[in-house]
């Protein structure tokens, strides 16, 4: 069981969260060239090791989180809110 320390709710089983994939993808403008969208939607670095990824605490506060996790050991290095502007809502970002 991955234990993800949600900055808002505390540490929870990963089954409360929904995985949203690679957080390093930067999505282009809605009208950006085709190539940029193909890159963002279809190509994945898929690293073996540290991975920045998005999780939504879907059965909790529903906030989207950025989790740094090792894809080989599953060790979680940090959890932060995806939307930086929401940071004041929580006591302190976990890391």
């Amino acid at each position: 069981m991955l234990r993800i320390k949600c900055p808002f709710c505390g540490e929870r089983d990963h089954s409360e969260f929904s995985y949203g994939g690679d957080a390093n993808i930067t999505y282009p403008d809605l009208a950006a060239p085709m190539e940029a969208w193909i890159e963002a939607v279809y190509r994945r670095a898929n690293p073996k090791g540290p991975h920045r990824e998005r999780w939504q605490h879907i059965d909790g506060c529903r906030l989207w989180l950025i989790v740094e996790r090792d894809t080989l050991t599953h060790e979680i290095a940090s959890v932060t809110l995806a939307k930086a502007a929401l940071a004041p809502l929580v006591d302190g970002q976990s890391s």
């Binding site: 949203g20 999505y27 998005r54 939504q56 879907i58 989207w64 995806a82 939307k83 929401l86």
Partner: peptide, 13 residues
């Protein structure tokens, strides 16, 4: 719902 939340929080904050 989850998709719209995703867009708002992570893409168009």
């Amino acid at each position: 719902m989850a998709w719209l939340e995703d867009l708002l929080e992570t893409r168009w904050p």
